[in-house]
Amino acid sequence: MEVSRHWRLRTQRYSLVGEICPNCGVKLFPPRDVCLECEAPAKELFTFTGLGEVYSYTTIYDAPAGFERYVPYTVALVKLAEGPLVTAQLTDVAAEDVQMGMPVEMVTRKLTEDGPEGMIVYGYKFRPISLTA
């Protein structure tokens, strides 16, 4: 049980709150307080739109404890529209239908759970943006 650990990350997990560097303007996700690019202090919050595209992806068949029941599942590097890459599962799409460059959007889903009676961890995943909607 790591209740406080997951609670601390609620704004990142549920609404992609990162940071923007007041010095060089780079947008940061995950937030890190010191800019990845210029190493200036960066504590100004920035909420990402949740839009992006698939930069790379993998379908996992050999899962660690806590994820066996979801096999196979697809983890991607999503390039957010504002710049940074984020590691996230893809959802609502078959593994064979994923393509490089595919437009995706953030949704909130169950990530894992701490045993049958434990806490359920929710967070962001990404799904394809329907071009017909």
Binding site: P30, A63, P64, V75, T87, A88, Q89, L111, G123, K125
Partner: peptide, 9 residues
């Protein structure tokens, strides 16, 4: 917090 929680290995 940002890789393993997504089931990455």
């Amino acid at each position: 917090d940002y890789e393993a929680v997504q089931g990455a290995t």
